[in-house]
Simulated scan of single mutants.
Amino acid sequence: MTIRTFRIMVRGVFDGLTDAQRAELLAAAPQHDVLHAAFTREGHLSYDLTARAAFTFRFLDQGEDEEDILEATERAEQAAQAWLTEHGYGYKNLRSQAEDLSQAPLGKRQRRAANTAN
């Protein structure tokens, strides 16, 4: 049985932040810089409040079947909502995008490696 790896991005916009919440997020901004963004099991949050109120969570999940991507996406959305709610941050316009890496096109190096293996 093959294990499929899914990358899921949950995007949204902070909504109704208080001055204290905004200051808290700005203080933690270096940890959430988009340049350090990574897909992780627990989810990685990135944002740049100085530019706009948008955020992105990046999740990594796995499944055995192609349909498992739907459950993985639901888990990612629930995890993002739970984190935001736990920290008291309002949000809106939550949406998700998921990718099954087993179906992703090969990059240049991967194509070259596959051609040399054959």
Score class of each variant (00 low, 15 high):
residue 4 R to C: 01
residue 5 T to K: 11
residue 6 F to A: 00
residue 6 F to L: 02
residue 7 R to C: 08
residue 8 I to Y: 00
residue 9 M to Y: 09
residue 9 M to T: 15
residue 12 G to C: 07
residue 12 G to M: 02
residue 12 G to K: 03
residue 13 V to E: 03
residue 14 F to D: 01
residue 15 D to L: 09
residue 15 D to F: 05
residue 19 D to F: 14
residue 19 D to H: 06
residue 22 R to E: 05
residue 22 R to V: 12
residue 23 A to K: 08
residue 24 E to A: 09
residue 24 E to F: 10
residue 24 E to T: 15
residue 26 L to Q: 12
residue 28 A to I: 09
residue 28 A to P: 14
residue 29 A to V: 03
residue 30 P to G: 00
residue 30 P to V: 00
residue 31 Q to H: 08
residue 34 V to E: 12
residue 34 V to Q: 15
residue 35 L to T: 10
residue 36 H to Q: 15
residue 37 A to L: 04
residue 37 A to P: 03
residue 38 A to C: 10
residue 39 F to N: 06
residue 39 F to I: 08
residue 40 T to E: 03
residue 40 T to F: 05
residue 41 R to C: 04
residue 41 R to T: 04
residue 42 E to Q: 04
residue 42 E to W: 14
residue 42 E to V: 10
residue 43 G to T: 08
residue 47 Y to T: 12
residue 47 Y to A: 05
residue 47 Y to S: 03
residue 48 D to K: 12
residue 50 T to C: 06
residue 51 A to M: 14
residue 54 A to F: 14
residue 55 F to N: 01
residue 55 F to I: 02
residue 56 T to Y: 10
residue 58 R to M: 12
residue 59 F to D: 00
residue 59 F to R: 00
residue 59 F to Y: 00
residue 60 L to C: 03
residue 61 D to K: 01
residue 63 G to E: 00
residue 65 D to F: 06
residue 66 E to M: 11
residue 72 A to S: 01
residue 72 A to K: 00
residue 74 E to Y: 13
residue 74 E to P: 06
residue 76 A to G: 03
residue 76 A to K: 06
residue 77 E to Y: 06
residue 78 Q to V: 10
residue 79 A to W: 08
residue 80 A to N: 09
residue 82 A to Y: 14
residue 83 W to R: 06
residue 85 T to L: 01
residue 87 H to A: 06
residue 89 Y to C: 07
residue 89 Y to V: 07
residue 90 G to I: 14
residue 90 G to C: 08
residue 91 Y to P: 07
residue 91 Y to A: 12
residue 92 K to G: 15
residue 94 L to C: 13
residue 94 L to E: 14
residue 96 S to P: 04
residue 97 Q to A: 13
residue 97 Q to H: 15
residue 98 A to T: 05
residue 98 A to F: 10
residue 98 A to G: 06
residue 101 L to W: 05
residue 101 L to Q: 03
residue 102 S to Y: 04
residue 103 Q to G: 11
residue 104 A to H: 10
residue 104 A to E: 05
residue 106 L to E: 05
residue 106 L to R: 05
residue 107 G to K: 15
residue 107 G to V: 07
residue 108 K to A: 11
residue 108 K to P: 10
residue 111 R to P: 11
residue 112 R to W: 09
residue 113 A to P: 03
residue 113 A to C: 11
residue 114 A to R: 09
residue 114 A to M: 03
residue 116 T to G: 13
residue 116 T to P: 05
residue 117 A to G: 06
